[in-house]
Nucleic acid binder design. Sequence first.
DNA 1: CATGAATGAGGTTTCATTCAT
DNA 2: TATGAATGAAACCTCATTCAT
Lengths: 211, 211, 211, 211
Amino acid sequence: MRTATANTFQPRKTPIQKRSTVTVEAIAETTIQVLLAVGLDRLTTTRVAERAGVSVGTLYQYYPNKQALLYAVLEVHGAKLAEAVENACRACRGTAVKVLVSAVVEAFVNAKLARTDISTALYAAASEPEGAEVVRRVSKRAHRALTAALAEAASATMGEMDFVALMLYSAMAGATRAVLEAGAPAKMVVRLREELLVLCQEYAAKSVQSN
Amino acid sequence: MRTATANTFQPRKTPIQKRSTVTVEAIAETTIQVLLAVGLDRLTTTRVAERAGVSVGTLYQYYPNKQALLYAVLEVHGAKLAEAVENACRACRGTAVKVLVSAVVEAFVNAKLARTDISTALYAAASEPEGAEVVRRVSKRAHRALTAALAEAASATMGEMDFVALMLYSAMAGATRAVLEAGAPAKMVVRLREELLVLCQEYAAKSVQSN
Amino acid sequence: MRTATANTFQPRKTPIQKRSTVTVEAIAETTIQVLLAVGLDRLTTTRVAERAGVSVGTLYQYYPNKQALLYAVLEVHGAKLAEAVENACRACRGTAVKVLVSAVVEAFVNAKLARTDISTALYAAASEPEGAEVVRRVSKRAHRALTAALAEAASATMGEMDFVALMLYSAMAGATRAVLEAGAPAKMVVRLREELLVLCQEYAAKSVQSN
Amino acid sequence: MRTATANTFQPRKTPIQKRSTVTVEAIAETTIQVLLAVGLDRLTTTRVAERAGVSVGTLYQYYPNKQALLYAVLEVHGAKLAEAVENACRACRGTAVKVLVSAVVEAFVNAKLARTDISTALYAAASEPEGAEVVRRVSKRAHRALTAALAEAASATMGEMDFVALMLYSAMAGATRAVLEAGAPAKMVVRLREELLVLCQEYAAKSVQSN
DNA sequence: CATGAATGAGGTTTCATTCAT
DNA sequence: TATGAATGAAACCTCATTCAT
């Protein structure tokens, strides 16, 4: 990744025809595969194009630069994650903290484990500046939604719940990451769901009451 | 016409004269600063050497390649972290789970926040394959120590405590990371200590009793 | 942060478009010219690319590394030489030793002097390990063909002719090299043909009869 | 071997004290060992110094630059070879061509095989410009001596014997080189002495009579 | 639109040589 | 004198990006 020259990460053109959409998707998907196969610092635009079955030129028709590639992939996945958390929060309006936390944990774990390959690949992609930025944005969305939901459920102010939400979110992220990096074997995933639930429930119970 | 390069990350030579010791330290320290200043993918050996006030040649006398630089820095920091956790565990032999967890959380947070610049910089370095490996090794050490200590304190088997320890460690890591990435302002650090303690205590209490 | 490089000397890609074929040829030819102009240890990939009128990047599209450049050139020339000797041997099946030797000497000298610039340049290239390997292979082919041909012509075993063939081949090589390194002026070349013929004929006559 | 800056190949100072002489010799000898062990393009001044048990600084006290090292080694060996041929010629004044040729062949082969390791190592060293120059000078001396001796023995002019001498010398060189590069096993060496004698005798006999 | 050859800045690494200790 | 740390020019090679076909 050379020093930035142009600086738009948005796909260069909105694909209208079907052919293009397919191509765009194929490139994005290949990016993930390459990321997993060879790692971030051997992910080259040529290699991605090659494995995607198109030429580099074509790749550059849809993604203005290499960063845009990673950005696009992260963005899609990140959006899903943020939405999952937001939806869970929205669906639990009016419920008890316990229910809320349970729904959020489940939504988070599901979203992360839906495609373990993508999730794992993205830990690498997130180390680039733009990657980090996407992660920050996603975290902020999830954090905000969670803060608001907790405040409502606990009849507390958002200020009171802000840090609690951060703890919950970052603990979920940390634990899930640990499991993913261990290869996410079925048994661990089962335990993760159970234990993460306990961890978050207990913490929320204690934290909320004390506020 | 170059030929095969050795591929070890181990320092190339042990400094004999005093000035070289200084040089080695300066390079390591500068690596962190550069990592923070420009990020991993603009960290070049030339840049590090320049800012450290030595020539590239000198850098390569002590670090056989770029990876070794990052590796060295991570290794030192990682070792401290692992030791901190191990020491806390050792110091709490015979105490209650509550005391143990409290000590571990404190040790972990202290180690991580001792130099926030280093800790923050290393999240980037950890994304490279070798970096990831160091992180894995450190996590394993901490995880193992914690598992054993919990098993002893709770009169449980290590198998029973294995996943519990993983949850505790990864939650600590996740939460601390979130705070570091937010810039680790004093207020947040205070809250982190409080809340992380609560989170770990509650979880441990619940988890241990159920086993 | 680079990572492992492939270590083959084989051309990297087969040119598809016409212009690239031209490029590949130009680079190979330029390599010889540079070898002659500045010598092996000042032959740099940059210099070759420059004189060939292409960028370094282009050079590396077709030759994976510097050694491959030299290797390619040597290989082509070496193959011609080996074939020349083999063809001469084949063409002389059933003839007397005298005829055979005469044909081989002529074939060898012709092949070597066809392009004195290349032959001269390659003495330098042959000093690198890979170069030496090509030379070994070529010598082996020529030696083998000559051994077999001599054995047939002299009704002797190959074992008996093995060393004789080696002497003949290495004497031809030595004498021709001496002339090439003297600049291969016309007069010397004429003498070389005459004298080498005598030398080889006489030796063969004596050697073969005594076996 | 970087581009030449200073250009003297002569040892920097004539060692007077015994200690220095030993050092100088050790370095020269080590150079040969390193040449054999790792090849010309991994022969570094540091490596030579290291294996010789001295510091680079010391090496540079006796040899002004890297080329001087190789030059010195080649020079010593080359001088021996030239002298061997010259001595053989001188010792055979007044003898028949047959005797002369026999003596020269023996002298040449003995000189070359006295230390096969050195001879082999020097083929590599001879590819550098300065190396080539030494080889040229040595060949010229041997060639000149042989030409004169042949002229006298055959009652011919030096002009008539010039090319004959070249053929003899280059054939000897070629054949001996082939044997050295094959590892110079005892059996081959025996054959070399026999066959080279035949080859040179026969050629000389024929060539001399025809002049 | 697609292709893939060409570009060249820039990164990593080596090693001959110097000079303070 | 001997040492070995430091230097830095220069070599090799990669890869994001462009553009003629």
